[in-house]
Write a protein that binds this DNA or RNA. Structure first.
Lengths: 210, 210
DNA sequence: CGGGCAACCACATAATAATGTGAGTAGCCG
DNA sequence: CGGCTACTCACATTATTATGTGGTTGCCCG
């Protein structure tokens, strides 16, 4: 028996969901609430397996509710429920540990399937959400930018610079003379088109050389 | 009629998939290949709607094949097919524009459903993959770390440091004396627990202060 | 009103970093 | 072989940073 808690401000929808889920074999709705004002206490009191969490709610909304729950409970499965596959919310929800993200227009059969899937550790999402997630992922990742053709030794020096080493420390770390470190660094500056340590460090981060 | 192309080195599995898909209403397998050696030419010649792409193949593998296809064709839907929900491959596949990622053990019924879903712009993935993706996403994002309680002015100075400004430049940029810049920076170092410009810059990036 | 704090400025000294010039060794490639 | 590059080292000079000590002003808050 999968124990479900529902957060949804629209009374009709909340009732509808409760009916649907309670009426299905193997599912039980413990309670439903219209916002997350007391979410932590409620979750503790009812100890559900899965929480259906609407995002747009007056008072404490779903994202904030998600955060509050995750602050004290990382076990319970939380399925975000929303009308739009809105970019910002999806992002926030998944970065804050939501287990799935589904649209309200999901057909009843699918919804039950999703709840069950979440309960067993899956990450259910509707197709449109999944597409969004993939897009975000691929857009935020790529662009390793230029390569700058740093030699192995130069990369190594840059790595140490980034870690806050001084020339002296780099020299002893790499078993070379400090003047050699200097010449490596000079070469690095040329290749990166910068002329100070901190610019090089910044560029190393930006262009993900390190 | 959804036109499918299959890349899979195991002859039995390739045959099996072909039978299954071809034998289903609304699906047609145009051809099957055992590696991606000529993938670009093949995709051009057959012009499929969906490509099933195994990852582990001798010769040109699935990830490389994916890249090659995407270099010339961003329209065709590509479903990656693999035995393991291996972190690195999932990541690479989705950053390179795969439309979905499913496990080989997916039951036949689901597989057809996934192909249809991909064809209509969805992003099918098996539950275990979806879970992985969410985990990656949330792990790479969060952690704004400590706040370090930098004052507004200190944040501003740090910002300029990151952009490669010298003390002198910061002073003129902020219309304050260079000694004031020094004292701000000293305070920043204390708060960040570092003692050099480049460490501060590195920390600013890592902890996303800037 | 007095203590705490952010922001401002000054002077001084030591340590590091940046720049220039020059040079030797070793390996790769046409 | 001769040219190229990576890697190594040296010496010298100037610029920039790091650190210490100390002081003024103005604001907020109990």
């Amino acid at each position: 028996m999968i124990k479900v808690l529902i957060y949804e401000d629209n009374p009709q929808l909340r009732e509808g969901l409760t009916m649907l889920i309670s009426g299905s074999e193997g599912f039980d709705v413990l309670a439903g609430f219209k916002n997350c004002d007391n979410v932590v206490a409620e979750v503790e009191a009812f100890n559900p397996d899965v929480i259906l969490m609407d995002i747009d709610m007056p008072g404490v909304n779903g994202i904030e509710g998600l955060k509050r729950i995750r602050a004290v409970n990382t076990q319970v499965k939380i399925l975000m429920l929303t009308v739009f596959d809105d970019n910002k919310n999806v992002f926030q929800a998944i970065s804050n540990g939501a287990n799935g993200y589904i649209l309200k227009k999901t057909p009843p059969g699918k919804l039950l399937e999703y709840i069950a899937e979440a309960q067993t550790g899956g990450a259910p999402m509707t197709a449109s959400i999944a597409t969004q997630v993939l897009k975000m992922f691929s857009s935020m990742n790529n662009e390793r930018g230029e390569d700058y053709n740093l030699s192995d030794r130069e990369k190594q020096v840059l790595q140490l610079l980034v870690e806050g080493f001084s020339y002296k420390m780099i020299a002893s770390d790499m078993f070379i003379a400090i003047d050699t470190v200097r010449s490596h660094i000079k070469k690095i500056y040329e290749k990166l088109h910068v002329n100070s340590k901190s610019e090089a460090v910044a560029k190393a981060f930006k262009d993900k050389i390190v």
